[in-house]
Write a protein that binds this DNA or RNA. Structure first.
Lengths: 159, 159
DNA sequence: TGTTGTCTATCTATCGATAGGTAGACGCTT
DNA sequence: AAGCGTCTACCTATCGATAGATAGACAACA
């Protein structure tokens, strides 16, 4: 799943294959099929784990006394700068119209829970949408322009 | 190129094929190769045309007396709601790390010219980054959640 | 002994790309 | 006007590579 996550975050859904992630971890593609019968199931499982971990990380930031928006911003920043990759749900969501229901619903879950969490913390619904959009978009921009510092610059106005 | 643009906006770079777009327009894949020798060249050409058209559309909005940010917002809105698809450069940019230099540079061009245009109009560089990121992110969010109205809600704060 | 996990081997379908050929439109020269 | 080359835009056929997926054998372990 680690290998799959990395590949998906770099290439999107249609860009990764069983053979590649099998090679990454040193097994054969048939062995990956043993654990995840289809590509959809694998992607859905990876997306679910990613979302759960992401929200946990936000909670951890909040526990450290961070402001809610700054907490989200910090977790996105780490995802971009430590991993050097896009947000998994951003990478999948960009081709959302081409995903199967199962995978698409997991990606949806990331955004829906994100909006929930931000509104629970007191933000208006439109503000929650704006924060999530800006963070996801800044990550994309920084990635395209190959300059991680652009994430901070593009999200400075949120703080 | 129309067919290719639509496919790329729905499925990203690795998700579209010569055969598919050939079938879309009623020819064979070899005929597409005649006009575009490689997949990279085709994607790069489509991205360049998309960027040029996009910037022209912004200029057209500006000529109508629209505020610069509102002009950009309006063009993004049309791209989302009329076409019902992601921004081409957003769809390609999400898997930016996996694109060839040629295609990647065309996607970069979209963002660089966008930032240029916004700063020329008087915005601070960080503000320009923020606007572009928020628009691109709001488009992604609206697409994933299958609700075009979320674009307006998520970008209301820009106006 | 039964379960779990991985293997080898193979299937069908599709990928991007190329080779070689053809029909028709156009311009130039005789 | 007739003939000749050239160009465009497609075609059929095929290439090697790779995709996702499956069946069945084998080894380790409880």
């Amino acid at each position: 799943m680690d290998a799959a996550e990395e590949r998906i975050r770099r290439t999107g859904y249609s860009g990764f294959s069983f053979r590649e992630i099998a090679a990454d971890v040193g097994v054969k593609s048939a062995s990956v099929h043993y654990h995840f019968p289809t590509k959809e199931k694998l992607a859905a499982a990876v997306a679910r784990r990613y979302t759960d971990r992401f929200l946990e990380a936000v909670d951890h930031q909040l526990a450290g006394g961070e402001d809610i928006v700054e907490a989200w911003r910090q977790v996105f920043r780490v995802a971009l700068q430590r991993d050097g990759r896009m947000c998994l749900c951003g990478a999948l969501g960009a081709t959302s119209q081409d995903l199967s229901r199962e995978v698409r619903d997991e990606v949806k879950r990331f955004f829906l829970l994100g909006i929930d969490k931000l509104t629970m913390a007191g933000l208006a619904r439109n503000s929650a949408l704006h924060v999530l959009a800006a963070l996801e978009g800044a990550m994309l921009t920084a990635n395209v322009l190959e300059d991680p510092s652009l994430f901070d610059k593009g999200t400075a106005a949120l703080a």
